[in-house]
Simulated assay, not measured.
Amino acid sequence: MTSNQPTVVDELDPPSLQARFHRLRSNKAFELFVIGIIVFSALVIGAKTYDIPPLISKIIVFADWFITLFFLVEITIRFIGEPRKRDFFRSAWNIFDTLIVVVSLVPIEDSEMALVGRLIRVFRVLRMVSIIPELRVLISSLIKAMPQLGYVALLMFIIFYIYGAIGSFFFASVNEVLWGDIAISMLTLFRVMTFEDWTDVMYETMEHYPLSWLFYVSFIFLTAFAFLNMIIGIVVNVIESENRARQIEEQGEQPARSDLEAQLKQLQESVNQLLERQR
């Protein structure tokens, strides 16, 4: 006795286009290929800065358009592969990538905005940050550290301003080029902070003011040693916090995945039991 009702599911429904693109954009090989195209794009941009033969120049133009079209296809795959399309544009990196790709499509090579077109293509190299998660962590950490860095930068500006005014009052007669006004004095102090031939500046003023070395040594201790190390410490602290939060998030996802696997296993057992009863 036969039954018209199927007892065994012969094949599963084919995955949707969204599911296929979601798997494709999450594929490591695809990500590495995209990174390779970004590196190739950077090389093409660098090649344009040299004097090259006309034939090579035409090849570079075609390569540039290929890269642009590839990025358009890649951003389309990522958009279609997004389970919820509204969430795609909630990511600042996705908005940045989309703007770069869309603006790159404008044919402005032979127009007055050719320079703008080249600049936009230079920014395509930044897409490396949106592709590699570790780089995204560094950039997000730097952005989150900006409020604290702003206070340190404000304090550094105050120190620069005070020392610049003192340097302009005392050393303008020694060297008008380096200490003529407070703006030039602050620029000279930046040179001192970065240790760019700062001893030449110091020895020049010491010929007229023997104790002026105290001015430079105290400034270097405050800026190069104290404030710059403070900036590094703030950035490192934020990066550690971001990495710790990322680890906690990944550890929190593991129990959820295990629960889902257990539910799927239980569902499979229930289906098997139903099939055995029908037999």
Rank of each mutant, 00 (worst) to 15 (best):
residue 139 I to S: 05
residue 167 G to R: 02
residue 251 Q to D: 14
residue 138 L to A: 05
residue 83 P to L: 04
residue 126 L to T: 06
residue 110 D to T: 12
residue 66 F to T: 08
residue 238 V to N: 00
residue 162 I to W: 01
residue 95 I to D: 08
residue 214 L to W: 14
residue 110 D to C: 06
residue 111 S to A: 12
residue 74 E to M: 12
residue 256 A to I: 02
residue 82 E to Q: 10
residue 98 T to Q: 01
residue 118 R to K: 14
residue 259 D to A: 15
residue 100 I to P: 00
residue 277 R to T: 12
residue 16 S to T: 09
residue 25 R to Q: 11
residue 279 R to S: 15
residue 201 V to Y: 15
residue 275 L to A: 14
residue 183 A to M: 13
residue 66 F to W: 09
residue 4 N to E: 12
residue 85 K to Y: 10
residue 174 V to S: 07
residue 255 P to M: 04
residue 218 S to N: 07
residue 272 N to C: 03
residue 49 T to P: 00
residue 274 L to T: 10
residue 144 K to Y: 03
residue 61 V to Q: 10
residue 29 A to L: 09
residue 140 S to F: 12
residue 224 A to S: 09
residue 268 Q to G: 15
residue 94 N to T: 03
residue 183 A to E: 14
residue 190 F to D: 11
residue 211 L to I: 11
residue 186 M to N: 01
residue 73 V to C: 10
residue 134 E to K: 12
residue 259 D to E: 12
residue 162 I to H: 00
residue 16 S to W: 07
residue 160 F to K: 02
residue 189 L to K: 01
residue 190 F to R: 09
residue 112 E to C: 07
residue 222 L to I: 05
residue 150 G to F: 03
residue 160 F to T: 03
residue 120 I to C: 04
residue 97 D to S: 15
residue 243 N to P: 02
residue 147 P to N: 02
residue 13 D to S: 07
residue 187 L to K: 13
